[in-house]
């Protein structure tokens, strides 16, 4: 996998600050891990995902992720986008300040004409830029890997909108009414894809994934990346996938096939 080779310290699961001492300890621990994982002189395998602080070296039991198959995604279909808007009470209008938690993107290679259309949403990064820059701790990563905005803490500074390379965050600039009970949102706060955290906790699929399935395209798989028996983990082990801008080292939980 193209994003598995970089060395990054695992994120502190509480999203807390990096005190110099704690950081040094973590780096030392990583150095130890690197030795343990050296396969041959000069060949070191170090996957960012592997170690969770305080877990005794075990993987976090859950890391939710998505696999989006651009080969199955239909150009012109926006079932996932609509479903997200309906479920979370967002506007269908593409107004200049309307929230976009998920959007359809089309890429084309001008040399060959190869073109693919696929949805992009918050990538629920392991080393999330939004979490790094947030001055209040409002942007945070849950132990199950879902990155959220705690709107009780958000001061609306919009640093995260600037920092996120995937343009996954939106800012609510006007008063909102008719919110859904499961998706509180209001003026002056940042927001983004929540992976439908309420549905996920109730054992359901995120709204976009369910809609893609209903549309018969089967372009999205949702599941626990850390469970080898899950559909998503199996699929990831079978087909070639990548993450968008893997070079940035943010470690997205959203994987793509066919781009």
């Amino acid at each position: 996998m193209s994003d598995g080779s970089q060395t990054m310290e695992p994120r502190d699961e509480e999203g807390g600050g990096h005190e110099p001492d704690a950081l040094r300890r973590k780096l030392l621990k990583l150095a130890g891990a690197a030795v343990a994982l050296t396969l041959a002189p000069g060949v070191t395998v170090l996957a960012r995902d592997l170690v969770v602080k305080g877990s005794g070296g075990r993987k976090a039991p859950v890391r939710y992720g998505l696999l989006i198959d651009a080969n199955a995604c239909k150009t012109g279909c926006d079932a996932c986008v609509r479903a997200c808007q309906d479920y979370n009470g967002l506007s269908h209008d593409p107004g200049p300040d309307n929230a976009q938690w998920i959007r359809k993107v089309t890429i084309t290679n001008p040399k060959t004409g190869f073109s693919r259309s696929f949805p992009v949403m918050c990538q629920h990064c392991e080393n999330a830029a939004c979490v790094d820059v947030c001055p209040t701790g409002a942007s945070f990563r849950r132990p199950d890997g879902i990155v959220l905005v705690d709107k009780h803490r958000c001061i609306g500074c919009r640093y995260c909108l600037m920092a996120c390379p995937y343009k996954a965050r939106s800012f609510v600039a006007r008063n909102v009414s008719d919110q859904k009970p499961w998706a509180p949102r209001g003026k002056g706060t940042a927001e983004g894809c929540t992976m439908c955290v309420e549905r996920v906790e109730a054992g359901k699929l995120p709204a976009c994934v369910a809609a893609c399935e209903r549309a018969g395209h089967k372009g999205m798989v949702f599941g626990n990346l850390h469970d080898p028996k899950s559909a998503i983990a199996k699929r990831l082990s079978e087909v070639a996938t990548t993450t968008i801008r893997a070079d940035l080292g943010l470690g997205p939980s959203v994987h793509y096939r066919g781009i």
Binding site: K151, D178, Q179, K180, P181, W182, P184, R185, G186, K187
Partner: peptide, 13 residues
């Protein structure tokens, strides 16, 4: 209720 829904969802809850 600037952010939270002040009425229950029509369906569900």
């Amino acid at each position: 209720f600037d952010c939270h829904a002040a009425v229950p969802a029509r369906k569900g809850f």
